[in-house]
Design a binder for these strands. Structure first.
Lengths: 115, 115
DNA sequence: TTCATGTGCAACCTCCTGGTTGCATATTAG
DNA sequence: CTAATATGCAACCAGGAGGTTGCACATGAA
């Protein structure tokens, strides 16, 4: 008979924290949306239209790459960056878990009050 | 006839960046999961089981509160914190937007190659 | 009343982050 | 070959994040 889970050992997808941290910046969100268009783009190209320096954009791209959300491949003299949607979906599932848990809690409370 | 949207003016939900930033920390993710259980909890209660100080937990709760993901109500001598799922769902929608955009791009590419 | 409990506020510290500039290097264009 | 382009690397800087300690204060329990 499975013991009730202790309060401190909740199944929390804490491994997704770095992904959320990478998402928590306007510039990086913008880069992801641009790359979400499908076409791999070079750093110089991604820098155009931004008010930031190429180095700043490069740093943001490295952050995204370290979070596994983007992949950079050297192609000739330029590095093309492409989106990897897997971490995004993992993050979405993590959010769903919390929301679903919350909804279930509310439902239990409601049925308890109506009893 | 609607002009194709310019590349730099993509509809990016950049207002969700603060929410993602708030999510980008293990401790805060853990707090959210705990509060997702439904029961509002005091700071002292949330501190128990964590290796951090009460002040550290308080700071994290303030961050979550500033992001609108949590609401603290003073109740007697203790402050009870409760989850507000709205920002979570907004964040989930933002992630969905990017993923959907990516899927559509892939589908267009595929149908183009098969033509 | 007296004491323990639960918070809030402030100062302080260290480390990371976002950004810049400067320089070196590889690669493509003419 | 020579020049322009695209990138990488390193140093540097200001400010914010995460964490601690110390102290003051309100409130509930005995």
């Amino acid at each position: 008979m499975p013991r009730r889970r202790h309060r401190t050992s909740l199944r929390t997808p804490q491994h997704t924290a770095p992904v959320f941290a990478a998402l928590g910046d306007r510039t990086r969100l913008s880069l992801l949306t641009t790359l979400g268009q499908g076409a791999p783009q070079s750093i110089a190209r991604l820098t155009k239209g931004s008010s930031l320096t190429r180095q700043a954009i490069t740093k943001h791209l490295r952050v995204l790459e370290n979070a596994g959300m983007v992949r950079g491949v050297r192609h000739g003299r330029e590095t093309l960056f492409e989106l990897d949607p897997a971490p995004l979906e993992a993050a979405r599932r993590a959010l769903d878990d919390i929301s679903r848990q919350w909804d279930h809690a509310l439902a239990r409370l409601k049925s308890f009050l109506e009893e």
